[in-house]
Design a protein around this nucleic acid. Structure first.
Lengths: 182, 182
DNA sequence: TATAACATGTAACTAGTTACATGATTGG
DNA sequence: CCAATCATGTAACTAGTTACATGTTATA
């Protein structure tokens, strides 16, 4: 899947692995993230597979940049993937819930303290999507009317982040209340 | 993390890898899942690490069962992990959103058809948590008053599934509406 | 004077998936 | 008769994480 994130971004414009990481952190991190090291190794593999082409750009008083460009094979692979419908539910992983599931023997006050802390984290994350992520998307799309649809879809994924965090906060409130009654 | 799911279940009662998979599918699948093969290899590793002990139970006209039992080291490891607070937001992965993010060039009607189909899937999944999962939890906890707290926490994780699917359906409705206006 | 930003990469590892292999019994 | 259930496992692979290695420049 990281493959398609990288191809998808490079389909807009050539970039380095470093820049791709920055874009991901400000836009897709909400639903797909990767470490810098994985981005570099995946880009290398995509070039070996003939979907990308890279060249080195020398810079003064800065490390060299390796800029990746998508080619026809890469675009074809991306478009082929985009045209295939997603027809299955995708499993989630939420480590916190694993812990909660088996916490019946844990200390009540400790649990409450932890859940309240997480509540704040999720609340702040929600606000991040509403301010920082929102601003980032607007800034990219600004003055580029050809990206109108793109920006609407980017914003739909941002909106998912907002709704998810709201749901999480609401669920934590419910759960905290339940545990308070023990 | 699978490690702790397995230790957590085995902390209630000894079980086989096959049974653990069934329990997971009906309870934790909502926030943690694993393939049968991974469960077997992880159990083997946990026994090598000295956290579990297994013995073979022969059966007539059925394959032999390998029953795993948690030991003191296993309980200590589990309790140690349970006592450590979760203090960070955990990243999500939602493949559908990746596709949507890069779909500005895709066919509108095809996209709508797909999103409507997914809406139904999530709606049904929500109903599954409300009926099947709900019944499973009640059945396990029934007549075991010592599992009262446990059952409340299991139900809290089930409730997360319900709220998540409701949120997803709501988000899909919003997104469908937006795309319909193209 | 230290740390963040810029910039790329490899090595070793853990986690997770897919495919294969075996074989009896039960229910539709 | 065919599919599902019971039951366990290995091999080969892909994905992802952690740690290491290097070195400059701008900023606080």
């Amino acid at each position: 899947m990281l493959k398609y994130v990288l191809l998808g971004f490079l389909n807009y414009t050539p970039m380095t692995g470093y820049e791709l990481k920055q874009f991901m952190d400000e836009s897709t991190a909400n639903f797909w993230h990767a470490k810098q090291s994985q981005i570099y190794t995946t880009l290398k593999k995509l070039e070996e597979d003939g979907l990308l082409k890279s060249h080195i750009e020398a810079q003064e008083s800065r490390p060299d940049r390796r800029v990746y460009t998508i080619n026809e094979a890469g675009r074809a692979d991306l478009n082929d993937w985009l045209s295939q419908p997603e027809t299955e539910l995708q499993p989630r992983k939420e480590g916190l819930l694993v812990k909660l599931f088996f916490s019946a023997g844990s200390d009540k006050e400790k649990m409450l303290t932890q859940l309240r802390l997480l509540r704040d984290l999720h609340q702040r994350q929600m606000e991040h999507y509403e301010t920082a992520t929102h601003a980032f998307i607007r800034q990219i799309a600004e003055g580029m009317p050809q990206l109108e649809k793109d920006a609407q879809l980017w914003d739909a994924t941002r909106r998912f982040g907002v709704l998810f965090e709201e749901m999480f906060v609401h669920w934590l409130d419910e759960t905290i209340e339940k545990i308070e009654q023990w």
